[in-house]
Design a protein around this nucleic acid. Structure first.
Length: 706
RNA sequence: GCGCCCUUAGCUCAGUUGGUAGAGCAGUCCAUUUACACUGGAAAGGCCAGGAGUUCGAGUCUCUUAGGGCGCACCA
């Protein structure tokens, strides 16, 4: 027996060495796998943002995916796990901007586009390197030879091609529409980048001609000249749609028009409101329905425009009380109430979102398009693939959430006024516009200043990583991918958009199954955050207890879609398990002496049943059950009972009994190691080296026993 | 407002198509030159949140009440 078993298991001496053995073997790359691996199995890694380092959520993701990948590889699949990172446009840019302010007191405009982008790229490169190290530390059996970045040259070509194709299909258009404007970040943001925050404010009732209107935002009311009510509201039957009337308003006399619209809530306020199409999504939609005009009241930095008269140039917060004061002086203020509502803030900058009508690029989700003879809208396509079960979402309750979200989906604004990201592949020359993959020939063309929403490039991830738009062998072999494993918090941001992009551009699905994991919280169920000081760093855990223990602690006791409460004690507990396995091996190897495993002499129904059971759990993504069952069997059945009983047999048994018992111990241990390998790859691989087995391969490519 | 989830041993959670309640951790008692103290054994601990229903049978299915969490929409 190897002397290493005389000491307790030390992950520090094992893990890095084993990882380089794996790398050297080349088996992370499906092209190098032995012949029995024919049928492909693919997972693309959800690319971590290059905004910093990995947290426990990433570690959980890596553990789950690596377990499935190793399992499939041992089952004989041509297994590809493809890594990459995400440039995360706005998140990365705002992070660097914050650091610039802190370190140099400068902003991006001081530096200029080129210099600033250089800084962002440097930051991204550093982040990237850290992330790669962390992924390796977790034991991820991922194919580094195919690594991608959402903002590298190949992915840029994919983005430009996608843009051009969708433009030609009529799905990408440029238009003046209401968007979420972040005055702090000076960019548009998507509906999903909004965080609602509760705010206590005043709700004012003003006389508006013969009506009383309610508003929380008097500062937007300068240009209001339409008064809207529900067509069935009996209080206002005498006013007909299209009626006009004269009234005195903030800055003088105006003419207003009555509009009847069913979207009005009769029970809210007085059931009458005026609309501000330029600064409210709902109002914009009403205006659009009735073809009403509107005008901009607030500028891009949140100041009132000349339409506000004497209030022109003031900030909203300053103007609001003064406007109320003026209306009060005019006798137009009827009453005011305390009011609590949710205001929209930008996730990344915290700025209060001001809806604005702006000329931006959009993806039309409700427009029919024709591809391969089929005619449908993106929305219909996105619903169809999930409702027809072409894509299965685990746990299935998220299918409802997905469908609900799709039904509420509006056109997706894809242009951003930031610098870090894929530049929009559109060029202008006076009235002319050119959309293309390459810059147009000829003089005087100027490219659009804006970049694309980061999710535009992430949406292409399953196929841009495989070489699209080129018709590569990889694309043919590995796409559609088998599984997308990610956090439920990005179901809409990302999963839905991948389905959109893939359906539209490749006329297929990006993946067959979506497995959603939950958030990793601290031992008390609180979200881990720097300010709470309750962050558990995966690298610390790996250093202290080993990657194997860290992996198990993130798997066992956590079903799909559920948040996981993680404490350091839990990780410590699984370190004990690695050592237990180590000592089990020590005992078995000492006991069997020079015996070499002969599989044909052993059969064990109990173990067979367990392995069948575990296999079925693996196939059905019940990793938490599979892991726990193996853990329990190894420790409390094999070690506590079988090994104890073996001591008696070896002492008192006949020569034949002893020989067959030795075979039985070797057999059982080898199967346990194989089945546990996906979960705890390091310690099992290290033990495997010393197993007395003929024609042994590396454990990572041994055959799964069922 | 619309929707989803959770409530099972002190704590964290399993319980896969309904068939006499399970694990880990913690705690209690016992053992101790043992493959392993990163140990073993034993006992203890639960009207499965409350109520009603379906069923021969419900932690599991249906309805309902209460408490907790989350998502979406948003009110002018």
């Amino acid at each position: 027996m190897n002397e290493k078993f005389l000491k307790p298991y030390n992950h520090l001496e094992v893990e890095d060495k084993i990882y380089s053995d794996w790398i050297e073997s080349g088996y992370f790359n499906p092209d190098n796998l032995p012949k029995r691996h024919e049928e492909p199995y693919t997972i693309v890694l959800p690319p971590p943002n290059v905004t910093g380092t990995l947290h426990m959520g990433h570690a959980a993701m890596l553990a789950i995916e690596d377990i499935l990948i190793r399992y499939k590889r041992m089952k004989g699949f041509k297994t590809l796990w493809l890594p990459g990172t995400d440039h995360a446009a706005i998140a990365t840019q705002s992070k660097v901007e914050k650091e610039l302010v802190k370190a140099e007191g400068t902003n991006r405009h001081d530096l200029g586009r080129e210099v600033f982008l250089k800084k962002v790229n440097d930051f991204a490169t550093t982040s990237h390197d850290t992330i790669v190290t962390q992924v390796k530390k977790m034991g991820a059996s991922i194919d580094w030879s195919r690594e991608a970045f959402t903002l590298d040259e190949k992915r840029n070509l994919a983005v430009r091609t996608a843009f051009k194709e969708m433009y030609d299909l009529g799905l990408i258009y440029r238009g003046n529409r209401i968007v979420n404007w972040d005055p702090k970040g000076q960019t548009t943001i998507s509906d999903d980048e909004i965080v609602y925050e509760e705010q206590k404010t005043k709700f004012y009732y003003f006389k508006y001609g013969p009506f009383t209107i309610g508003t929380a935002r008097p500062e937007t009311k300068f240009g209001d000249k339409y008064v809207v009510m529900h067509p069935d509201d009996e209080r206002y039957v005498k006013y007909k749609h299209g009626d006009t009337f004269e009234l005195e308003w903030i800055n003088g006399h105006i003419t207003a028009t009555v509009i009847k619209d069913e979207s009005i809530d009769m029970t809210f306020g007085t059931g009458v409101m005026t609309i501000t199409p330029y600064h409210s999504t709902v109002d914009f939609e009403i205006a659009e329905r009735h073809k009403l005009s509107g005008e901009q009241i607030i500028d891009k930095v949140g100041k009132l425009l000349p339409v506000a008269g004497e209030f022109s140039g003031m900030k909203i917060a300053e103007a609001r009380p003064k406007i109320v004061e003026k209306l009060k002086a005019k006798g137009l203020l009827e009453k005011e109430e305390d009011y609590t509502h949710n205001i929209a803030t930008a996730e990344r900058t915290g700025g209060i979102v001001e809806p604005q009508v702006m000329l931006q690029w959009f993806i039309a989700v409700n427009k029919k398009f024709k591809k391969n003879g089929k005619e449908q809208t993106l929305k219909e396509m996105m619903l169809e693939v999930v409702e027809s079960k072409k894509i299965t979402i685990i746990p299935d309750r998220f299918e409802k959430t997905y469908i609900h979200w799709i039904n509420n989906l509006r056109d997706w604004c894809i242009s951003r006024q930031i610098w870090y990201g894929h530049r929009i592949p559109v060029w202008y020359k006076s009235e002319e516009i050119y959309v293309g993959i390459e810059e147009p020939r000829g003089e005087g063309w100027k490219q659009d200043e804006d970049t694309l929403d980061t999710w535009f490039s992430s949406g292409l991830w399953t196929f841009s990583t495989l070489g699209w738009p080129e018709k590569t062998t990889d694309l043919k072999t590995f796409h559609p991918t088998d599984l997308l494993e990610t956090g439920y918090d990005i179901l809409f941001f990302w999963v839905a958009r991948m389905i959109l992009m893939t359906g539209c551009l490749l006329d297929t699905i990006p993946f067959k199954t979506v497995y959603l994991h939950g958030l990793v919280r601290d031992g008390k169920g609180k979200k881990m955050s720097k300010s709470l000081g309750n962050i558990i760093d995966p690298l610390d855990m790996i250093e202290k207890y080993g990657a194997d223990a860290t992996r198990l602690s993130l798997i066992i006791g956590n079903g799909p879609g559920n948040d996981l409460k993680l404490s350091e004690d839990k990780v410590r507990g699984y370190k004990h398990f690695a050592n237990k396995l180590w000592n089990i091996t020590r005992f078995v190897l000492t006991t069997v002496e020079s015996e070499v495993l002969d599989e044909n002499t052993v059969s064990d129904k109990e173990l067979d049943d367990l392995l069948k059971d575990v296999t079925s759990d693996m196939e059905n993504y019940r990793l938490y059950l599979a892991g726990e069952k193996l853990y329990h069997y190894a420790w409390h059945r094999f070690a506590d009972e079988i090994l104890e009983e073996s001591k008696r047999v070896l002492k008192e048994g006949t020569v034949e009994e002893i020989k067959s018992r030795k075979q039985f111990l070797l057999y059982t241990l080898s199967k346990i190691l194989i089945a546990l390998h996906p979960f705890i790859p390091y310690v099992t691989e290290e033990i495997w080296k010393d197993m007395p087995i003929k024609d042994k391969k590396m454990l990572m490519i041994e055959e799964w026993p069922v």
